[in-house]
Write a protein that binds this DNA or RNA. Structure first.
Lengths: 212, 212
DNA sequence: GCATGTGAATGATTTCACAGCT
DNA sequence: AGCTGTGAAATCATTCACATGC
């Protein structure tokens, strides 16, 4: 009987690494590579080969001993493990600079993330066209999200409005939030929030650079 | 003799947490709070209070026993620990949607990050105005960065051009790179790269949502 | 009494090293 | 011979619990 991978003991930190592996594999496939070893992947990513093998093993046995991994097969299994083997419906809240840029970003659609609407509360912005979507008033948000079974909301509003907007998202039944506003959101358990703060990302640089 | 905090044994993961603490403290200061305990901070951030104290202790002794931390003082010490107690000169490469949005983002300047120029290779974009800067041709990049002692480059170009652009950045003497392109950059040691991939951030959500 | 700062204990993650398969 | 998958060892990080000081 084949061992069933148990998702409960996947280390948190392994998940973003899996995404990086997938990125590399997609690139390799474009380059025409059809088979690869953990060692070769490790060289390209500057990580330890055993770590790659162990990370993959949390999700299943994808390789062949003595041979390596089939690139196409591994892409398909990783995509499935990361949940991007299907389309996700996503809306963007905040049609400012960042929200508009996100709405237009092609990389999302390529990975199965489909921005189906963009919302704002500013009457000056509502009705304008952003990336083949008309900016909708935030008042339409909850019914829209309910009706269209939207699973993901991307919050690109100011720190002041973010908490309020997050409540609407939860009210509408959204299951995951990617939050660019620099505030810690408090949401119901069962709703997953990924907090992304661009200034914080720059601080990671300055921390390392500060005394050179 | 006071113990000197030894930066070599600061856990990697503590650094982004420090940035979160700083964010909270800035917010508390706006709310008029002047003193806080690790417990109160822990409650607001949903983390363990001992972790906050230990993280802070990697950088010094900032609190008073029996009393807590002075918010203004802790902000100043954290800012210094994270290297944002001064202005950083930054340029943006890529004047597409994301690059333009980043150039206009006000949050950067508030934390001391000063975008002093934006570059692109597309003649259709060069010369246009983005957030009070004229988009400059990439050919001017290396001399500009050298002359102005730019320390940080933000890469917001396609995956295809990113490696090339990173080489230019290093050639110009940039010390830190924030890379939004979904490729692993290989740069000289001593240059610090923070890789930020927006699709990957969404995958963190879908991983958790995939079977609900 | 109250809250910090920190060794010591626990827990998590990474790396090693090798059995097992091709 | 070459490479995966994985227990066991080593390393790294978090939490406990309490001495120390206000």
């Amino acid at each position: 009987m084949p061992k069933q991978p148990d998702r409960t003991n996947v280390p948190q930190v392994a998940v973003p690494r899996m995404a990086r592996y997938l990125r590399l594999l997609q690139r390799l496939q474009e380059e025409g590579v059809s088979r690869i070893s953990s060692r070769q992947m490790a060289d390209r990513l500057s990580v330890n080969a055993a770590q790659i093998r162990k990370d993959l093993s949390y999700f299943g046995e994808f390789g062949v001993r003595g041979v390596g991994y089939d690139v196409a097969y591994l892409i398909s299994r990783l995509s499935s493990s990361l949940g991007i083997d299907r389309e996700w419906k996503m809306v963007i809240i905040g049609a400012g600079q960042l929200g508009s840029a996100l709405a237009r970003y092609r990389g999302f659609r390529e990975e199965g993330f489909d921005s189906i609407a963009i919302f704002d509360s500013d009457p000056k912005v509502i009705g304008k066209k952003v990336a083949n979507h008309i900016v909708r008033p935030i008042s339409e948000f909850v019914p829209f999200v309910r009706e269209n079974q939207v699973q993901i909301a991307v919050i690109a509003v100011t720190a002041e409005s973010a908490a309020e907007v997050a409540n609407l998202a939860v009210e509408g039944g959204v299951k995951g939030i990617l939050n660019f506003a620099p505030v810690q959101l408090k949401v119901d358990p069962g709703i997953f929030v990924n907090q992304l703060d661009l200034s914080t990302e720059l601080m990671l640089l300055t921390y390392h650079l500060r005394d050179e």
